[in-house]
Simulated assay, not measured.
Amino acid sequence: MEFDFLTPIDTDLLIDIKNLSSQHLSSKVVFHTEDDFPDISKINIAIVGVPENRGAGENATTSDLSFIRKELYNLFPGNWSKIIADLGDILPGNSKEDTYFALQKVVSKLVKNKIIPIIIGGSQDLTYAIYRGYDDLEQMVNLVSIDNKFDLGKQQETISSESYFSKIIVDEPNNLFNYSNIGFQTYYNSQEEIDLMEKLFFDAYRLGEICNNLSISEPVFRDADLVSIDLNSVKSSDSGNLNNYQPNGFNGKEICSLSRYAGISDKVSSFGVFNHFSAKQESPLIAQIIWYFIEGVHYRSNEYPFGSKDNYIKYTVPLDDEDIVFYKSNKTERWWIEIPFFTNSHNKLKKNTLLPCTHDDYLAACNQEFPERWWKAQRKSII
């Protein structure tokens, strides 16, 4: 029933795509057509278009996803073993809420079947619907947004691409465990919003901080369930966005590297690209962002969930009145830090969980400095 919301690929577009050579990505993808729907038991990654832009305001243009599909399927795949399907589009409903409902049901069905949905929006408020798709999975959700804003909006605003995150924080059931913003630009966010991020122990990384060292974002993605990209986080000279000019932001190489980090994460189970309104100009970059995410998925190391510790080196660092424990993978040389948390309301039953971190976090601990991500995670386990 959930897939009844999906409309097949346009016939003329499908003809153009099928006319590409057998070496192109198009030949490796199973398409939803007028006559056939892909067997979801045989796919690993599902591409879903959602041309819903009402959340971007009255002046938003209609998303023409055909440009993105042409660019994507005209690329050459890597040595990939994952089965990819294009399930078509969820067309805008009578209201935004109708579209949210349809997307929520589709995402829930796919994630339950261990299929990674790649959502091509549409405005970024669709992230809210993807997040709600995890409701039936009975799990807490870690959301990572690559965005120049926090999208908190004003309390009285209806949900939009610039206020959807407030709805995620407030609405029940509240399944959000952590939120991380990658690439925010300070002048687009009020001091009150920045202070709120700190108060809620969320992670926010400025654009300059990430551009100076992209690798610090890798552990953030490693702990994410849902990754949402706002194309406004990319500077217009690289994205081709002529409708909403952005003088600063990530360049094309950087946004593709971040997308690959998201794909490599064993934990990421849904991915979306939103707020692209110069469809033809932005489509080459969007196609490459998706390509790099799929490339990352192919090279996942399957280190999550953290199983036997035989393949990890344990490091114990004495710090003040307690020991901080780190683990380093022999396979990928990636690092984790052990976080204590409490499992009942009286904070008496103490257990440990593992949080992705960097080698620099380990070095900071050796210099008697508490890693910031450790501190925030521990604070969350107490309150």
Rank of each mutant, 00 (worst) to 15 (best):
D4P: 07
Y187R: 10
D360H: 11
P318T: 03
I84M: 07
W374Y: 12
I255H: 08
G57Y: 05
P371C: 00
M140S: 15
Y292T: 01
I216E: 02
G252M: 00
V227P: 00
S217H: 07
S108H: 11
T343Y: 11
D360K: 13
W335H: 07
D225A: 02
F271W: 06
I383C: 12
N175K: 15
V141P: 08
Y73P: 04
L354M: 12
I229Y: 00
N241M: 10
M1F: 12
E52P: 07
V268M: 01
G263D: 04
F202N: 10
T7M: 12
S236D: 00
N94S: 13
I130L: 09
I255R: 00
H346A: 15
D225R: 00
N347G: 13
P117W: 05
I216P: 04
K114E: 14
E34T: 12
R69G: 02
D151H: 10
F31Q: 04
G88N: 02
T99G: 08
R260Q: 07
I115L: 00
K376P: 04
E138A: 10
Q378Y: 15
T186S: 14
F201S: 12
K309Q: 14
N174A: 14
F202Y: 14
K114L: 07
M197F: 11
D225P: 01
Y100S: 09
Y73H: 03
L363E: 13
P51V: 08
I324N: 01
G78K: 01
I130D: 05
L103T: 06
F250I: 03
Y304T: 06
D64T: 12
M140G: 14
N142M: 02
Y188W: 12
I159H: 02
R54A: 04
L143V: 11
W336V: 11
E372D: 15
K351A: 13
P305H: 10
Y315K: 14
A56Y: 04
